[in-house]
């Protein structure tokens, strides 16, 4: 009431000094309260998996399926350098899923090529121990170039089993995927872990060139090669990225807000309409969802490269030529992979 009266008296030009002071103090208090509320709201903890159970959605795309990419030239990189891939190759239609990876772990542990326990991780000038699944790696050629780190032969971490964000569980030495995330891309996997998966099944990680050709094809539009797997422009519901507002956005936090592989196929899920975002060769999720490890080990550096952008990046990183890099020991809720052969 006093507040209203104060405002009225101000409007009518009869404001006394006291009422002015009152208004000022209240305005200040209101502003402070609003600020505090804003900050507190922003600081509120993200919803955890315990609070929200993600829906299990089957987009109907088989993660075991493969696409053939035929030999020939295609525009490579942002500046469309015509590059010839002289052979046909096959690449997985989707990212490797949690279910597929847990099956691999179980098979490889049974075969004795993977162990579970504490393993040393080296990066930069540091080394630390991590509990996880690991296996041997023959090491990289080392050129001793500026900023290059030596990747020595030895046991390497594949997946940190105790880390938050892993959508696998382990009981009695047997891994299984959390059911709701079974058909989501496998994440929290190092390059070593991705490489080991592919090699175990006599496959390989695609090179950057192979990955990009499979993503964008050979066509041109508006004078340039395709920037996205589906065409020239990106809409909110083309892919899982920062602006997609998809069903799984609210699951951010501990387990990441990936979408099931093949989710953006033109279907509508619980009112969320997706656009069919398949690549020219029939691949899904070649933009967004998770970054994908590629196989190249370039001379004079130790980095491994990732392509495709993720649920956490803006659309600029979803352009097919954009890459990201990290040491092969790196793992993240935003990083997965697929294989080629």
């Amino acid at each position: 009431m006093k507040w209203t009266l104060s405002l009225m008296s101000l409007r009518e030009g009869r404001s006394s000094r006291r009422s002015n002071l009152l208004i000022r103090s209240r305005l200040l208090r209101a502003a402070a309260l609003a600020m505090t509320l804003l900050i507190l709201t922003a600081c509120a903890p993200a919803p955890s998996i315990g609070a929200i159970t993600p829906p299990f959605i089957d987009p109907g795309v088989d993660p075991e399926s493969w696409a053939v990419v035929s030999a020939g030239e295609f525009p490579y990189g942002q500046h469309d350098h015509m590059t010839n891939v002289e052979y046909d190759y096959e690449i997985m239609v989707t990212d490797v899923t949690n279910e597929q990876y847990s099956r691999f772990l179980n098979e490889a542990i049974a075969a004795g090529t993977i162990s579970v326990g504490e393993v040393e991780v080296e990066a930069g000038e540091q080394a630390w121990a991590v509990e996880g699944a690991y296996g041997s790696y023959p090491g990289d050629p080392f050129d001793g170039y500026k900023h290059e780190e030596e990747i020595k032969a030895g046991d390497k971490l594949y997946v940190p089993t105790q880390a938050e964000g892993l959508r696998l569980t382990e009981a009695g030495g047997v891994f299984s995927s959390i059911p709701e995330y079974a058909n989501h891309p496998m994440t929290m996997v190092t390059w070593f872990g991705a490489n080991a998966y592919c090699e175990y099944y006599d496959l390989r990680l695609p090179s950057e060139i192979e990955w990009e050709k499979a993503a964008r094809g050979t066509e041109f539009a508006s004078g340039y090669g395709m920037p996205f797997p589906w065409g020239e422009h990106i809409e909110r519901n083309n892919a899982n990225y920062y602006s997609s507002s998809d069903l799984f956005e609210k699951m951010y936090g501990k387990l990441g807000n990936t979408t099931p592989v093949g989710f953006f196929n033109g279907k509508t899920y619980e009112g969320y309409e997706t656009l069919n975002s398949v690549s020219p060769y029939g691949l899904y999720d070649m933009a967004g969802n998770v970054w994908q490890w590629t196989g190249d080990d370039y001379p004079d550096q130790h980095y491994r490269y990732m392509r495709g952008g993720s649920f956490y990046t803006y659309e600029v990183d979803l352009r097919v030529w954009k890459n990201n890099s990290a040491g092969p020991q790196y793992y993240s809720p935003q990083v997965g992979f697929r294989c080629a052969r």
């Binding site: 930069g124 000038e125 780190e149 980095y303 990290a326 790196y330």
Partner: peptide
Amino acid sequence: EEIFRVWPH
């Protein structure tokens, strides 16, 4: 080398 190059690009 110790920190920033350990992070992703």
